[in-house]
Design a protein around this nucleic acid. Structure first.
Lengths: 126, 126, 126, 126
DNA sequence: GTGGTCTAGACCACC
DNA sequence: GTGGTCTAGACCACC
């Protein structure tokens, strides 16, 4: 993983886990890396990882069992909320960026439809 | 400016100028910051800035006059190409991310339309 | 190789490769020296070699495969353009130098013909 | 002046004076820079300049008057010989380079004639 | 002041 | 091993 300097690293760690949960790469009950493992792999300070894990715990995304490890523990409802929240972020960013390039909203819609077709064709080739 | 660790800094500098040119914040003939000025402001090494400026020169985005400075020098045609190219990047990223969150293409279109309305209301408030 | 102080070293490196390609000493697909090898042999800084290689990449003279090396990758058309461009440089330099020595153009032609004969005889001796 | 690393600097100094004499930029009786002046301007070791001047003296290109300076002192005959010698160098280099680019001698002649015409047109524009 | 070249050396990613 | 990025700093040429 690479970290963006613009946002606190612990938040980026949380985002990373959110994405993995939403995509189904991490499911309820899965054990995630220990704080020490994560810190070593990502070459960041263990304290930073600890803060991320603690916040995820308080957000009910994970559950930490003393001496055993940290496990995904998110409810189906919260997962759906996460998904919606991340989509909103994407949508907002996309709308504002396209406008700042000078495309009006209906143009953007049309271009999006074309892109979706294009990406489907790319997939079909694989 | 903050720089993302995931992409080379010199490319992020170039992207920054591309955006400013597309948005009309920088026009043909405008003088941009000297390499040293930019480097000091952004707290990066002058060599990194120079690499960005040099690549922009070879892309015909700017013209560099030794001992004088660096000036925006992009043709209207190239500006349009830049705009299209940046839009394609945004579109592709957006389509793939929404799919990875599990939204199908028609859902995405609908959500986009709703977001555009929402963003318009935000604007109206300002 | 020895480098001339009058021209940047990285340009002289590029010129050297241009000549080798035109003369057929380097063909499409050939691997050229790694940046470190070249730098050690020529006793120059690897960064200087890299700049030359990078520019050759952007001129489509070579293709660079990260972790593998750099390979000649020039089209037949571009090779012909290179050849013409280098010939023009030689011709221009030669014409201007002869004039600055006070030879008029027809004298120069006559002397050239004589020189060609002389060089042919030298060759025949070898 | 810039010096080429491939040849001894003192020889390059001599070549420089030869050219200036042939072109008439330096005439019999003209005073040339003192050794110290030359060394400072060119940022080279005074000993190197001294060697060049000594050799020019022995070639009868200049005359040194103790306590007064060094003066051009070349005979008309020697000037002509110099001129011929430099032309031969140019011719040889040109013939060999064009051949190494794969042009045969008659092609070279034709291209030279075209270049002479082109350079005349450039001159006329000025 | 401006940009241009080069070195030395660190650290990274890919193979 | 390969190439890629970045810093620090020297020195140059042009204005």
């Amino acid at each position: 993983m690479d970290f963006n300097l613009a946002r606190p690293i612990y938040q980026q760690i949380i985002d990373d886990f959110k994405k993995k949960m939403i995509r189904g790469e991490l499911c309820k009950g899965d054990r995630i890396a220990s704080q020490r493992e994560y810190a070593e792999k990502a070459r960041i300070n263990p304290n930073t990882v600890q803060r991320a894990y603690r916040e995820m715990e308080s957000m009910k995304m994970v559950e930490t069992l003393r001496g055993q490890g940290t496990y995904v523990n998110i409810s189906e409802v919260d997962l759906q909320m996460l998904r919606t929240e991340m989509a909103r972020g994407l949508l907002e960013h996309f709308v504002l960026e396209m406008r700042s390039l000078g495309f009006d909203d209906s143009e953007t819609i049309k271009m999006l439809q074309e892109e979706q077709v294009r990406e489907r064709e790319v997939e079909d080739c694989d």
